[in-house]
Design a protein around this nucleic acid. Structure first.
Length: 269
DNA sequence: CAGGGTCCCTGTAAGC
DNA sequence: TGCTTACAGGGACCCT
C-alpha cells in the first residue's frame, strides 16, 4: 500500500518527468474520481510536494493538482490493463495505474482544499521539524483510542498506514491495543522515535513492495523494505526478536500484526 | 466525540 | 478442475 515512504519515492521519481513540463491534458473516463482535471490544460508543472500520502503538483496560474494513490494507485511509463488516467505531457505520456480505483485526483486553486477535508486535517509531517514530541504526547494523552487507530487517523502524524503503524508499534514494543491515554511519557517517546526511524529507513530502501507487487516505482522497480518487516504480513511466523509467533487481530477495521510477547498480551486476554 | 459497520473496487488465495 | 467466498485496505460516510 502506498504510505508515506512509497509516496515519497514516487514523488522523487516523478520530479524529472513532470517538473518544468507542460501538462496538455489528463485523459480519463471517470470525472467522479478525477475531478476538474480539464483545468490543468496547458499549465506547466512547477514542482511536486508531498503531504502525508498526498502528492501536490504546483501548476502555473495558481492551480494545484492533488493526487492520492489510494491502495493500489501508482504511476507507470507504460499503459497497463488498469490504466485509469493518461497524463499527456508535452514530451511524453505518463499513466496512472490503479486496479482497485481507490485513487483520487483533484485540481484546485492553490491551497484551497475544501474539497479534500482529510488534507485540511492532516497532522504534522513525521520526518520534518514540525513533528514535535510535545504535541504528539498531548495528542496521545487526549485519546482513549487504541494506538493502532490513532496512528491510522493521520492526525498525530501524516502518512502512516497499516504497514508502518504495525512496524512502528513493534519497534516501540507497544501493543496496538494500548490506549493513547495510558501511555507513559517514556513509552510515547519510544513510539515517536520508532515512527521517524521506520519511515526514514523505508524511504532509504525504496518502500515496501508486497508479494502482489501492488506498489512499484514509476520505472517498475520494487522497493525492498518488506525484507525488514518484523510483523506486517508475518502472521504465525517467528518474531525476529523472541521467536514467538506473530499474531493478527482486527483493530479499527484493519488487520493488525504484532508480537504478543514483545508488545504485551493486551487484547489477547 | 467515539466506536463500529458498510461501501467503494478487483486480484488473489483459500475452500468446497 | 472450476466455481464460490473471503480477504486485502485508505478513506468516506452512516448509525448508535
Amino acid at each position: 500500500m502506498p504510505e508515506l515512504p512509497e509516496v515519497e519515492i514516487t514523488r522523487r521519481k516523478l520530479l524529472p518527468l513532470f517538473v518544468g513540463k507542460r501538462l496538455l491534458q489528463l485523459e480519463h473516463r471517470d470525472p467522479r474520481r478525477y475531478r476538474h482535471t480539464e483545468r490543468v490544460a496547458g499549465q506547466r508543472v512547477e514542482g511536486i510536494r508531498r503531504r502525508g500520502k498526498f502528492l501536490l503538483f504546483a501548476l502555473t496560474e495558481g492551480w494545484e493538482m492533488v493526487v492520492h494513490l489510494g491502495m493500489t494507485g501508482g504511476f507507470r511509463l507504460e499503459r497497463t490493463l488498469h490504466t485509469r488516467v493518461a497524463f499527456q505531457l508535452e514530451d511524453q505520456e505518463v499513466f496512472f495505474h490503479d486496479p482497485r480505483r481507490f485513487g483520487r485526483i483533484w485540481v484546485v486553486r492553490k491551497g484551497d482544499y475544501q474539497e479534500i477535508p482529510l488534507l485540511l486535517q492532516l497532522g504534522p509531517e513525521p520526518l520534518s521539524e514540525d513533528f514535535r514530541f510535545h504535541e504528539f504526547w498531548l495528542g496521545l494523552k487526549g485519546s482513549q483510542k487504541p494506538l493502532k487507530t490513532l496512528l491510522l487517523e493521520q492526525r498525530l502524524a501524516a502518512g502512516v498506514g497499516n504497514i508502518y503503524a504495525d512496524e512502528a508499534l513493534f519497534r516501540a514494543r507497544l501493543s496496538p491495543f494500548r490506549r493513547g491515554r495510558e501511555l507513559t511519557e517514556a513509552e510515547a517517546q519510544r513510539l515517536f522515535a520508532a515512527l521517524k526511524k521506520v519511515l526514514a529507513e523505508a524511504i532509504l530502501l525504496g518502500g515496501s513492495t508486497l508479494s502482489d507487487r501492488t506498489y512499484q516505482q514509476p520505472d517498475g522497480l520494487p522497493g525492498s523494505f518488506q525484507m525488514r518487516h518484523a510483523v506486517y504480513g508475518r502472521t504465525g511466523l517467528p518474531c525476529p526478536v523472541c521467536g514467538t509467533p506473530i499474531a493478527k487481530r482486527v483493530v479499527g477495521g484493519r488487520s493488525t500484526h504484532f508480537c504478543p510477547r514483545c508488545q504485551g498480551m493486551h487484547g489477547l486476554l
